[in-house]
Design a protein around this nucleic acid. Structure first.
Lengths: 378, 378
DNA sequence: CGCTGGGTTGAAAGCGCATTCATCGTACGC
DNA sequence: GCGTACGATGAATGCGCTTTCAACCCAGCG
């Protein structure tokens, strides 16, 4: 009653288990007649090769992994929430998953995914690590120390995190041009809209992405001859709720209020939009708002959010390429890819609103071309 | 230079491999002092337990799988396409993946995903099947015959496909209330908007979902005392491009043109919207259009698409529950869950347009509550 | 007609871990 | 103080498959 094994098939077909194995691993090395006998027996018995056994014997799994934090906004989990529908909008990690799955499949690998809650990642990662030939990790999903140990044994590529940690600089990295993207975005705010009093709503200091974006923000000031801010004007979490909080704090603060706010990501910016609306602050007239990420939700809100679009799917694809390359040559130099981003000008920064409706060419007026400027890391 | 194994750790810690194993599988059965020694050695060596070996020895993988077709609209793959951005919108399978991942994690499983192209699914499924303890399959992703063989050896749940195939009726199923959803939707068209000349744009006959929806369409006619259509007025593929084709065929056909068209899914309906716009046909004045699925894109188009929303994430969650349940009791009766759907009234059917902009409560006016009616399979 | 070599197939040795079963102490009970 | 039972640990076996290495078969050649 147990699942049939090579032995069963071999017995049934009147051959040795080696031959059964060959039928699956190297069909051409088995005579056609024999092969048919084996295949027939396998079909009859309902034989499915054990991935575990195969993996054990051949010392590889043909599976790639992805560990990502469970980013879901808790709000979005609540079906009664106003944000209910946002959950349907594709988030960061979904895109990466898609990209990795495609690329992995192309290379003959399957994809194992595991989101990690704040709680017990220790177990999670080791678990994943033990099952795959290599895997990608979204930055800060896994404690450095643990990654260090694991990466000694199998290829790991870090996603969306700069090579900051010395202990991890032997890892391959894929990231987007955070610095240049925010630089271009801020430059747009300054040069095209004439803003001089800008604020930056950042995330925790240990968010490499956020920090890089802030540096781009600084650089734009430097470039324009404006006083360079030393640090983000406010720091909060990366959710919509936190974005509301951030903008509230900014506005309630005494002193001059800014004329434009750059948020560390789109979710925060979207949250801020709600809060601003609630307060009667007009966007972009009273305050310009920009985000970063290019989540679909950004186009649905009013005003539509100006942002920087990241090629998230490509992030996943590149991760797989790096993994495969390293699997092929363990000794190669650590690689680091920086993917180009593009500024998406919509109305929240003061750019003219564009028609988001059906037109002659497609259902969406917001084509990928106009209003964008591609930017590559220098 | 090979990855360290239990033997290495055991040697380093001065214990037997059995003890090392116990430290990981049943920590409490090892004295605290010993445990620490082992853990220390493991850390030092960079030991990561081999999932393959563990799986082989314990006869289970703690991994659940998901096989789905690669639904992506080929158009969406073309970065120059007008649909470029649609790719960012969450598609059917992404939601299922999310749902399954969550539920699987809750039960201590990882998730292995594999999309299958039209080409070599044979290999794919066997590959997945050999690596997991059980898996879910989107209907029609895998040939019946193959599924039949595999499902004899491990739990398989069929997603979004009715239990039509006798060879597969021992499988657990999860589906949505296609019939009742389309019934409610069509009823809305007839009763609330007074339509009497409706058309149905269906998909291939072997699409169980599409057929069930059509039967709901028929039922609404029957209920209203209208002549019951024998078959869909047109059948095409499920993509946007095919939707354009379908509506074109419908309009070019001689005889009376319908006043409302129900499409088998949202993607087709969205495509139709483009074609109608191109032809100068006003929606909903000249022709009402409704879809099915509730994809986010449906809300972005103009006019916003009236549709039936499926709880796709729950589909994934329920699949895992069923899998886990069967893993716990192989002998249980085949279960079949039907998830409720809800009609989402937007403007493409003639319902008043609703404000999709920021309001006091959230960035989206299209809350999950108003304009919907929940429907459960009878 | 014996020999050689290529093409097939079989025997056997692991792969790294879980899991009995046996062993060894040792705390306890009488 | 001795037997007992229980807790902790080790030895050994096997999970199902891949992979040499060797054996074998037969065609072709000298």
């Amino acid at each position: 009653m147990n699942a049939p094994t090579v032995y069963d098939v071999a017995g049934q077909a009147g051959v040795s288990i080696a031959t059964v194995s060959r039928v699956y691993r190297a069909p051409d090395s088995v005579r056609a007649g024999t092969r048919e006998k084996v295949l027939e027996a396998a079909r009859e018995l309902g034989y499915v090769p054990s991935g575990n056994a195969r993996g054990l014997a051949s010392r590889n799994t043909r599976v790639l992994g992805l560990c990502f934090p469970d980013y879901a906004d808790p709000d979005a989990e609540d079906p009664d929430s106003d944000y209910g529908d946002d959950a349907e909008l594709m988030l960061y990690s979904d895109e990466i998953i898609r990209g990795m799955e495609r690329a992995a499949r192309r290379h003959g690998y399957a994809l194992l995914i595991a989101a990690s809650l704040a709680e017990g990642p220790r177990n999670l990662v080791a678990d994943v690590a033990g099952r795959v030939d290599g895997f990608a990790v979204l930055a800060r999903t896994v404690p450095t120390e643990e990654l260090e140990v694991i990466s000694r044994r199998l290829p790991v590529v870090m996603l969306a995190g700069p090579r900051e940690d010395a202990a991890l600089d032997h890892l391959d990295h894929v990231e987007v041009a955070n610095f240049d993207g925010e630089l271009a975005l801020t430059r747009h705010l300054i040069a095209d809209h004439g803003h001089t009093r800008l604020a930056f709503a950042g995330s925790a200091e240990d968010s490499p992405d956020g920090e890089a974006r802030f540096r781009g923000f600084q650089a734009a000031h430097l470039e324009a001859g404006l006083p360079v801010p030393e640090r983000p004007d406010v720091r909060t979490g990366l959710t919509q709720a936190e974005g509301e909080r951030a903008v509230a704090e900014l506005l309630d603060r005494e002193g001059e209020t800014p004329h434009a706010v750059a948020f560390a990501n789109d979710q925060m910016a979207v949250g801020a939009l709600s809060e601003l609306r609630r307060r009667g602050v007009r966007v972009p007239e009273d305050l310009a708002v920009v985000g970063f990420d290019g989540i679909p939700l950004g186009r649905l809100v009013t005003p539509a959010l100006t942002t920087v679009r990241q090629p998230m799917r490509r992030l996943g694809e590149e991760a797989v390429e790096l993994l495969v390359a390293r699997l092929g040559d363990r000794g190669r130099e650590p690689a680091s890819k920086v993917l180009p981003v593009s500024v998406v000008r919509r109305s929240s920064c003061g750019c003219p609103a564009r028609d988001d409706s059906v037109d002659g060419s497609g259902p969406l007026g917001d084509g990928p071309v106009d209003g964008e400027a591609s930017v590559t890391q220098s």
